[in-house]
Design a protein around this nucleic acid. Structure first.
Lengths: 392, 392
DNA sequence: GACACTAAGTTCAGAAAATGAACAAATCAA
DNA sequence: TTGATTTGTTCATTTTCTGAACTTAGTGTC
């Protein structure tokens, strides 16, 4: 009974914050711990107003006091989001079995399990609902304060983060997945494209916290990309912003499954690299194998990696020219960006960017583990909790 | 005396609006005339609050009642910005002599003259100040309500729209032009990059009013580009967003004055087209001439236009893939987009965009007159008046 | 043409949110 | 110990917004 009440309260917590409180939560999630005075200045409010807002948020359990900073005058007390004021479940529909994780407001993974993947949205909703109790079992706190489910998938998602407009991988067309899961599980649910979910998780939890405009290029089996612009995820007019995989990078090149020719995807994706290797008679099952071959001087391997790296570098250079982001974050799962491929990519970026810019746009390479997608998914739920859907 | 007072009042008008009033002005400038009830809904305010805000803005002369719309119930009265509540001066530093125009809040050009171009910012400030009286002479209203000067130039401008970080054309490096002009003339001044100024003018006055995310590609002697994203001009981390002219479009192609090779600028700019024609022995002084040659079957002319068009089309297709804008607006001064060049551009866009997208992104071609840059410049001043620099 | 019906816009008392100024608290520096 | 300095709180006051009742200006019906 008490549990149920609490659940209702936290589930609606985001909704019952005033707009000033929301703004404050947003600022802290971007800047990290801040003193009340700093927050007042950032929000353009008086110290008096801040005092009240902070007190209310502390009472609600959203904020808590952290370290004390000593300077001249009375020391300031930094306030931060309470990492355990809300918990989120993230599910990646990119692999089978599908990973399912439980995370706190800092993106820390607290529990992990998996569930069978399906192409039927109702079966997915069922699997999630059945998986919840065991995921939450050892964490009574999380059970009470579960505030959202996030789902990452390969495909286009609409602006409300509720409907999958199209997914070739899952064979979907206009599937209201979020609603189906929400109704079955009783938990607020949001879905998002895989690359965009990773971008959100890097903005909330990762290495792009303080950067307002950046692009994430995520190298998995395919090539994904997403942009944050002026502190907001930019999804594009049809939700297609960041689809660099189908930029023409070799005009008149190999035919692509999308229908046109010379797409980046046909040269630089892991799938393409492996296929080209096979065609050249190389017995490679992973990028590391090919890198090894190249390091021993195998001409075919070197040629393939050069071609793939140049193409990706050129695409990223075009992205830099077009959008002038404050950071390019390249995430890769396979863990082999240190070899020839990575070198060529970096070089190709350098040579194809306006010399005045060269070196001006930081390129950060980040090796990520198998949890990226699920953590990204959870971050979508966290983002909706923190900032809300109507992110004005 | 009275004049002076009035001047002070209107100059600071923007500053003395409350944040709700500002928001309202912004919404109207985006959506066009609205009834009070519609405005209340859009801003999420009560009818009561709207009533007061509208009254104040009408008293200030910022809004006025326009048509009455009859439906069921009491008819609604649409309110619009009063076009003559503020006037702006726009100057283009792209030509010599430099055009100088006077415009109202609708972007209508009320007076026009020109001034000598200089590379010395103080001489420019002097010329503007000396030009003002004659520009305003026949318009006493504008004299009283002059609210800003905008300057468009080729180069990089910082976020405050006050400093020119770099301009190759003018030979500048960190020139605080806005401040110099402001101090000399006594009028609030803002500067902006040429392509970005055109984008703002299309958003405020032109064909992109209601579109939140779009890109403008402006074809003049060079190729400019600028993006609006979620209703805001996106300038990029170093003010370089939209620099598509130096995207590598023909890897290993002709050397470019920027230092690298195969830039779009080396194939598709008017300058490049003319140069290539000359190299091929064609006696052409304008794009129309080359178009004419092509239409009579001249192989060289056809080849040149094909190459230029394909390159520009590919660059735009990449832009679409990367940003998925709601509109691509191509503005061209030379008035010759109806021929082969235009056809090839359109075709190249189609064939290089993900087939699923093809035709989904509207491409609008707009022939503009010689006033584009000056009008764009004026729109920068208007934008700062309407929305303010701190466009939260 | 009188009547109800509908929706826009206004008014006004009261609630909500933010401010300014005075003050309490917690440290450093001399 | 005393003064300087800066954080954070309190409280009366002002600003801004809301809700409900009301006025206004039409349409539709008989």
């Amino acid at each position: 009974m008490s549990t149920h009440l609490h659940k209702q309260k936290t589930a609606a917590l985001n909704a019952l914050l005033t707009s000033s409180q929301r703004q404050l939560v947003r600022v802290i999630s971007e800047s990290g711990p801040l003193s009340r005075t700093e927050m007042a200045n950032l929000l353009g409010l008086s110290k008096a107003a801040m005092s009240g807002i902070a007190r209310d948020l502390i009472d609600l359990g959203v904020l808590h006091e952290t370290e004390t900073v000593y300077g001249q005058g009375r020391p300031s007390v930094r306030l931060d989001l309470h990492p355990e004021c809300a918990f989120f479940v993230g599910i990646s529909l990119l692999e089978d079995p599908a990973p399912m994780i439980l995370s706190d407001l800092n993106g820390k993974i607290i529990a992990r399990q998996s569930m069978p993947l399906s192409r039927d949205p109702h079966v997915i909703a069922e699997a999630i609902t059945e998986g919840l109790p065991s995921l939450l079992q050892a964490h009574p706190d999380a059970k009470e304060k579960l505030s959202g489910i996030g789902v990452a998938l390969s495909g286009f998602v609409d602006e409300s983060q509720a409907n999958c407009v199209q997914s070739t991988l899952l064979g979907w067309q206009d599937v209201p997945l979020a609603k189906i899961i929400r109704e079955r599980s009783g938990v607020e649910t949001f879905i998002e494209n895989d690359a965009k979910a990773v971008a959100v998780s890097e903005k909330l939890f990762g290495s792009a916290r303080e950067i307002q405009s950046f692009s994430v290029v995520s190298l998995g089996d395919g090539i994904g990309c997403a942009h944050f612009i002026d502190g907001k995820l930019y999804r594009g007019n049809h939700g297609g912003a960041g689809e660099i995989a189908h930029c023409t990078i070799e005009p008149g090149g190999s035919p692509c499954r999308c229908g046109k020719r010379g797409c980046l995807d046909t040269v630089s994706s892991m799938k393409a690299i492996k296929e080209m290797s096979r065609a050249e008679g190389l017995e490679c099952t992973s990028l590391s194998d090919i890198e090894y071959e190249a390091s021993t001087g195998n001409a075919a391997a070197i040629r393939i990696l050069h071609r793939a790296g140049s193409a990706l570098g050129l695409a990223i250079a075009n992205l830099i020219q077009i959008n002038d982001p404050g950071l390019i974050l390249i995430t890769h799962v396979e863990g082999s960006f240190d070899g020839l491929f990575g070198t060529v990519v970096n070089q190709a970026i350098e040579t194809n960017v306006l010399p005045r810019y060269a070196g001006q746009t930081p390129i950060r390479i980040k090796r990520v583990d198998g949890d990226v997608w699920a953590r990204g998914a959870a971050s979508i739920a966290a983002h909706n909790f923190l900032i809300g859907p109507n992110s004005n």
